[in-house]
Design a protein around this nucleic acid. Structure first.
Lengths: 205, 205
DNA sequence: CATAATTATGAGCAAATACTCAGATCTTGA
DNA sequence: TCAAGATCTGAGTATTTGCTCATAATTATG
């Protein structure tokens, strides 16, 4: 470990518009390159090339390669929690089926953009402790909320709500990833219907 | 690409016992190293060191690093299909619930050995086209069998058996991986029970 | 317009790593 | 016992890759 605590924060705050533009180009290019080549083979030089900027510029906004991945993942997590929080401000449907539908749809929508990138993110990111914790926290929150939901809802008839909550979250997250990222992806709407049906019948006993 | 078609086959068939022993040591060491460090950071030198042999010996049995991963994955796939084939020779239970239980248990057992390694394998291996196809074929077979099962079983009441089969396979595969490889893994028996319950209630409508 | 501040450049360095090869050591078989 | 073949060794090579830094170009400021 370097003495200066292996930075993840950008080394410089952009002060001109072109700087912010360059940052965005780098992130967009990184998303494509990582999705196409994987993390290890997605070299920083390739990212710079794809972004149409020099390698030097890249390192003016990101202290190292990991920081780029971290930023991409952070964005995804923030987008997801923001979307979920927004839904939670309004009133939820009554039936457990429709509640599930809301959240499954949220998950599907969050991954329709670039499923390959997302898959990559959640696979490679766990190398870093900081990101591992952040992911773990988000997941634990989701499981917690799900558990509360299961315990408080009259239609639900599962004995062990803790286990059921974990199963529900894992199923949604992973199945969405997998099915959407496959070479022959399932139709998103149909996936939503079937998954909602499965979860609903499960928790209703 | 090199002109000689990037080999995956070992360059030499072992003719003495010590050779076969070395091969096994390499694979065992690779499994540990890959599980601990990931594929990229699992260097061939580290594998050789852990196996207690020289780096030169390693390259006498595997033409390159990818071939080691390929062999590990092939073993896992072969073990899985062999176990499934064995089960299919005997008579299956009547109820769909008990049928699901048989296969879920198979999946759980196949991953109890070294879940971290398996997770790694399925995440990193798809870089190679050959392995991608092999995995795809196994998966398609499983989906096909599941579909036949769903269509032929009187208790099953799903409209779109093709989609349902994909959902069932993805759920079992991925949830098993995820839940077992987590820092705080779910009890295997409880996982089996809940998953069987979920799938059964799903397909029974 | 002039000076400073910000941003961009890209050749090249240092480190890591997959892999080679010439020779040493061990095993086999007659 | 001993030659031929099989196996093992590990320092070294070729390549890749993350990243730096001196310098240039651009933009802001007064």
């Amino acid at each position: 470990m370097t003495p200066d605590q292996r930075r993840i924060q950008p080394r410089k705050q952009p002060r001109q518009v072109r700087a912010e533009l360059t940052r965005q180009r780098i992130l967009a290019a990184a998303a494509h390159v990582f999705a196409d080549h994987g993390y290890a083979a997605g070299t920083t030089n390739r990212i710079a090339e794809r972004a149409g900027i020099s390698i030097g510029s890249l390192y003016q906004y990101f202290p190292n390669k990991d920081a780029i991945l971290a930023e991409l993942l952070t964005r995804h997590l923030d987008d997801g929690t923001a979307a979920a929080a927004k839904v939670l401000t309004g009133p939820l449907p009554d039936s457990i089926e429709e509640i599930f539908r809301v959240f499954v749809r949220l998950a599907v929508e969050a991954h329709l953009g670039d499923p390959h990138l997302l898959r990559m993110l959640l696979e490679q990111a766990p190398r870093s402790n900081e990101l591992l914790e952040r992911i773990g926290r988000v997941k634990r929150d989701m499981v917690g909320h799900t558990r509360d939901l299961l315990e408080g809802h009259p239609e639900v008839r599962v004995a062990d709500t803790a286990t059921a909550a974990r199963l529900v979250i894992a199923t949604v997250e992973l199945a969405v990833h997998d099915l959407l990222a496959e070479p022959d992806p399932i139709d998103a709407r149909r996936l939503e219907d079937e998954m909602v049906a499965m979860l609903t019948r499960y928790v209703k006993g």
